[in-house]
Design a protein around this nucleic acid. Structure first.
Lengths: 131, 131
DNA sequence: ATTGACATTTGCCATTTGGCGAATTATAAT
DNA sequence: ATTATAATTCGCCAAATGGCAAATGTCAAT
């Protein structure tokens, strides 16, 4: 099913581990992933899921996105150079609205977006005149 | 084993999809993920693997690392070089809320903030008055 | 109400992932 | 060489993922 996975990832992991002079069991203890699983990953019998990848990243000295990219979960460094204001999706975010919304906890922010989508559906049904 | 996965990811995906007025089958056709699986993901019955996440990112208008972060596969400040999210005022702006809101025209964004402040004043008057 | 055309959900199954414990294979140390 | 000990691999299992097809739900137009 998955075809873009890097088949060399196992070798990369193994090289990273031996470079740090860690045994499978030691890496297992540091990462919380079983040593047998790590061994199978290294020799390509298994492919690590995102959560396993996340667990082994730091013990091996990888940045998270770095190892995700190596694994083929992320495409090679798409992150552009920073510009002044990020362009979330399509349009631009009004700085005032952003500042106001940012003062709320995440749940409230999400709830506000939920309310917005409800209002939008009401609005469209009004203009269509149905019901 | 998985503990840091975002329980709200399904809702985020659903909101993203309906915001684009896509059906499950359409998103399935665009992403190559079966519609039944997408449906289960949206209502939290399944959690998308990294490869599924990657497939649905672009059709939903997410950056890859953005949706990986929302899912909990990457930790919040992923690895950008220089570019951090701006800290509007006190707290942090939820990326999903930001991109949803950014799709609206400025007036609508302001109106949403207006509604938010109304809700907040109602909340304060409730806690002051009763109880 | 009935039909038809959809969208969504459910049942079921194959595949994959990942852990535990038992082999098996190095690696030393007598 | 023969142990003792550590490291890796193998066998088997439970749980999760994801697809397909059938069932169910929704809704507009007769």
């Amino acid at each position: 099913m998955e075809q873009d996975r890097n088949i060399n990832l196992g070798e990369i992991v193994r090289q990273g581990r031996v470079a740090l002079r860690l045994t499978l069991r030691e890496l297992s203890a540091m990462s919380g992933v079983s040593s047998s699983h790590l061994g199978r990953i290294e020799r390509g019998e298994r492919f690590p899921s995102g959560s396993v990848l996340r667990k082994i990243a730091s013990p091996l000295g990888f940045e998270e996105d770095e190892i995700f990219t190596l694994a083929g979960y992320l495409s090679p460094h798409p992150s552009g150079i920073g510009e002044g204001h990020p362009h979330y999706g399509g349009r631009e975010l009004d700085p005032f609205a952003a500042r106001m919304l940012a003062q709320e906890p995440i749940e409230v922010q999400r709830a506000v977006i939920g309310i917005l989508s409800i209002l939008k559906s009401i609005a469209t049904s009004m203009t269509k005149g149905s019901r």
